[in-house]
Amino acid sequence: LCRISMSMTEIRSGFSAIKANIQARDPIRTLSILSYPHSLHKVKSSDRCCITHQLFNFYVDKVFKHCKTEDSYVNRKISSIANSFLSVKRKLRQCHEQNKCMCGQEPTEKFKQILANYEGLNVTSAAIKSLGELDILLDWMEKS
C-alpha cells in the first residue's frame, strides 16, 4: 500500500484563493479535461494510486508552466500549489519504484483519455482548464 502524507489543507487553500479567477479564464463549459467522458469517480479503488501518480506528473510536467498570468498574486499561489505538487510527486514516484503504485490497463486508458482531452485544446487553454479543475482532483482524492 502506498501511504504518503501531504498537506491537502494547504493545497486546497491555495486553490480556493484563485479558483474564481482561474475558472473565469476558461470559457469552455462543454468539455472537461479530468471528467470527460468518464468521471474520476468511476475509477476503481485499486487503480487510485496509479491515476493519482500519473495526474501529479501531468500537472507538474505539463500544466503549471503554462498557467502564468498577469496577476502576480495568482502566480504566487500557482507557484505554491506547483511546489506542493512537486513534493507529492516525488513521494508517489518512490512508491512506484517500490512497486506499490502499479498501473494496469484500465487506469492507463483513462489517463490516455485525459491527455487526449488536454491535447485537444491549445496549450494555454488546456493548462488553465486543467488548473481550474484542481478541485475535481482534490475532491476525488479525498473521497474515502
Binding site: F64, Y73, S79, A82, L86
Partner: peptide, 19 residues
Amino acid sequence: EFQGEYEREYANESWIPIC
C-alpha cells in the same frame, strides 16, 4: 524574489516577485 524547486526544474529557473 523567490524561486521554488518547481521553478528551478520545470519553469526555466524563473523567479517570482513578492509584491
